[in-house]
Design a protein around this nucleic acid. Sequence first.
DNA 1: TCTGCGTGCGCG
DNA 2: AAAGCGCGCACGCAGA
Length: 863
Amino acid sequence: MAKAEPVEIGRRLHEKEEAEKRTQRIADVLENKPKNYHVITDDSKLDAMIERLREEVRLQQKDEWFRRVFDLFNDTLIRRKLSERGIEIPLVKSLTVWDTETSGLDKMIDLSGGYSFWLPLLNEGYYVAYGHLTGEAQCTRSKALGVIRRFIEMADHIKSFHNAEYDLNIMRNDGLKPAGVRFDSQDAHWILNEHEKSHGLKPLFTKYKSMLGPEAAAMDDYTFEDLFGNESPMMYDSEIVGIYAIKDVHKGWLLTKWQIDTLVKTDDLARAYFEIRQYLPEVNTEITRTGFVIDLGRLRQLGEVYSAELEKAKRDFLDAYDIDDNFLYNMSMALKGDRIRDWCEKQQRRIDKQAEMLAKRKAEFKKANPTTKKYAQLKEWIERAESNPLIEPIPQNAPDYITEFNLSSNDHLAYLIYDHLGIKDITKQVVKDKSRSRAVSKDVLERYFEREESLKPLAKVSLYEKLLGTYIEKIPDALDVDGRLHTELNTVSTGRYSSKGYKGKPNDLFRENVTDDNFLEHIRCLVSAKEKSVPKGTNIQNIPSRNDEGLAVRKTFIPREGYTYLGSDLSSIEPRLQAHRMSVEFGDDTFAETFRKGLDSYIEFASMMFDVDRELCTEKAYKSGLINIPYRKLTKDMFLAKGYGQAEDQFVKTAVQRGITEEAARAGYAKFDVILPGFSKMVQETFAHLRKYGWTATLWGQKRRFPGYIEKYRRLCVLMKKAGIKGKDDPELGKKSRRFRTQVERNEFWDLIRFTGGCERSAFNHTIQGSGANVLQLCMIRSYYECTLARGWEFNLTLHDEQKHSVPNDQLTEEAVELYDDIMTNTVQLATPLACDTVIEPRWMEEYSPDEWDFNNCKPKGA
DNA sequence: TCTGCGTGCGCG
DNA sequence: AAAGCGCGCACGCAGA
């Protein structure tokens, strides 16, 4: 029996058992269908269903819990702000829980084939079926969607979903224009516990079941997979899918109710959720669905030019070095010697063995009878062995032997630089990570260019390889069904967004005109297509901009025909937030005052900290050669260093690289705390809060928790006491750490120092970076309502401290720019004024300030 | 052929 | 024997 067979039999058995289990579960679920679950498969029942929805809405008006909750949704700063501007977010009148069952997971292509909703006060749920492929009787798609269209599109009847962005996309694919999607139990859970391993509805429900009341306790935990395996629900009967779908919204309701109550009870979490987060699913969906038009012609052109440049740089590099057989031999032995030698030995043994066999069979062959089968077999074997001798056991034949110098291989480059050329390794002087050596990164290489001119093309090689590989060659293949480039936004630990590519179904599955007649046939296509097979979209937040070559890539992002970009970034938002905290919480107004006076705070503090005239602290003074130390940059570095908790030595090191003496750098560093005493107070108080509670929060109460910090800090205190260390800032910490008697204890000590230090830096940073994210989110929310919904501007981008819309050219006026400025600077009020830089862009990064723009002709002045 | 990791680099 | 925050992606490499 071949080895694979038992495995295969085992697999089949397991599969069969799983299938039987699923069948049993399905039978269970059908048998125990609750009386208050209603599966609708007949158009004539739809009106009665909607009547129940109306009844629920009526009941909620009079219910105390709901009225209190509506206030939470309604009573927000952003709503008041919008109201002042004549933009009304209608007052909330009801809250129901919804879900869609779909043909798949592609956010631009897939469609719903059923929806479910839960009516909390009536305590009943509905599932409407129209896309099932079982041939059974079901509702007509247009009727099923038609009856809920108005409700789904009403902003005052708010809907809760679990992962609302997905359902919003599906509903928009269905041709609906959903509004009032204002609760997302997945988002809410992120606010309650961002460390949750799994944010799916089922795992959350199972985990928190005991807190959700007796109704929850009685419910089973079957997951989608438990019932349907990996298949689409559209392949199953509406009855079973319906029960499952209703159970989902039922669970969703229990979770939603508990979450709202918990948000209210816990610290400031209701603020984080209701002031900001409740609005974001719609805003995010709008941004990610809008995407970017790409100037493909220009991108292709750029690709051609850069490919040529890359080839040239590679040639220049290789021409300078004699990469001959000898070089490759030495490199192979240096990098892969062990594996190559190993192979040679094994190969020699194989050869010896074959020779032995050959000799043996030749002897047998001599004796064999030519008429026998054995004779023929031996003959064939000997002939084959003699005509196909095993390759020689020399290094050049080993699979690991390197036959070509690869400029993308760090190992190859390191061999060339450190072994072949014998350049002295300065990695440790340049990079932060002390454990590293033989680095071939840009910053290290730059230092070698001076003595080894021929290495210079390497800088171009990595530049063009990055641009071509990550952007230029990727983007044309990553466009979605609308021909645009999209992205997926996620929330990270501080509350910022991250952006990434995503995978979907092939674009040719997209069908523009779906009718009741072709719907099921189309669903059949969608269901049978492989999920997540085609890479689409990119990270939109790291499109190059810091050098000309990269900038050219950004310039291929263009507004749609007849529109122009209007973009704005918040100027120095993080320093302003630091200044705000220092002023409001710690009574140090110095920093805030510089912003109020409209001064360049880095120049102001540069002058104070380094004892230099203001005039000498400008960028201009440095660039013009008036002075050879970039004081403004240095000061900016220092604020960053302080904000991220950088060590003094590390700051001094980079400062010295900028041309200042070590003494002056240290003096400036020390003076920082004299001039801005509130800064270190702010940092220390934040640490104290972290030590007490294990988390920190943004100005809007959005938490970041640091699991394990409190315990580990406590343990560290015990160890520090033991060694006579006064605290983490004891200047003799290193010296005193030698007092630990055992290596184990010393290791533990340093591990704790590293861990707690990491938490502390992240925790302080969170209060600033996270608040910055909140400020921009509020700007985004306001501009979603005021620009996108009210004025029809496309919402293309959010990028940490900036956002971008596309404005129809006939709307691009001075007033439009003023509105955008107002959104950026007056949506949020801090102890420091906010400032922004608003630009008009015919292409991304082809920027014109409003003074440079001819609003009458919608083009740059003088163009 | 897939997966996980290290290194390096794009962005704020 | 520590000491700059927050990300995602491409590539080489090693092991399965």
